[in-house]
């Protein structure tokens, strides 16, 4: 579990990684540094140590410059940081609403009618079987 200082550092990093854009919220507006990060870490406890190291390494530094250094010098930590940030972001109800897509489940309805005419052309072209 992160303490308040760690969360503040992470929030600043997260908003550099995922700023707001049009209907899409920023990482903090989506709730990433709060419960969603904990949820993501719950799914990937193997990344907790790398993530904590990444945050510690960036503490007290300009977020963007710190990310530059982290990506160059500690790629495993940077990878854990970005994966958890994006992973938490897509857990957010605000993000899902802004993405406006209709996720599965969906019935596997037959769509042969949409291409059957094209298939007859494929059959007519034939195939040289050896």
């Amino acid at each position: 579990m992160l303490d308040a200082d760690q969360r503040r550092t992470f929030a600043a990093l997260a908003d550099v990684l995922i700023p707001a854009s049009g209907p899409m919220p920023s990482a903090t507006a989506a709730g990433v540094p709060d419960a969603l990060l904990d949820q993501a870490l719950g799914y990937r406890p193997d990344l907790a140590e790398l993530f904590a190291e990444a945050v510690a390494r960036c503490t007290g530094k300009d977020p963007e410059a710190a990310l530059d250094t982290l990506a160059a010098q500690q790629p495993e930590q940077f990878q854990a940081l970005t994966l958890l940030t994006a992973g938490a972001y897509f857990l957010s109800p605000r993000t899902k609403a802004a993405l406006a897509y209709d996720p599965p489940p969906r019935s596997a309805l037959d769509d042969v009618d949409s291409y059957i005419d094209m298939l007859s052309t494929v059959v007519d072209r034939g195939f040289a079987i050896r």
């Binding site: 990684l17 700023p19 854009s21 530059d68 495993e76």
Partner: peptide, 21 residues
């Protein structure tokens, strides 16, 4: 999430920051 994965050696600004969206 598949579309936002960063790999070591990638320029992070190609997939994060404003480029994320």
């Amino acid at each position: 999430l598949t579309h936002t994965l960063w790999e070591p050696g990638d320029d992070w600004r190609a997939g994060f920051g404003p480029a994320f969206h």
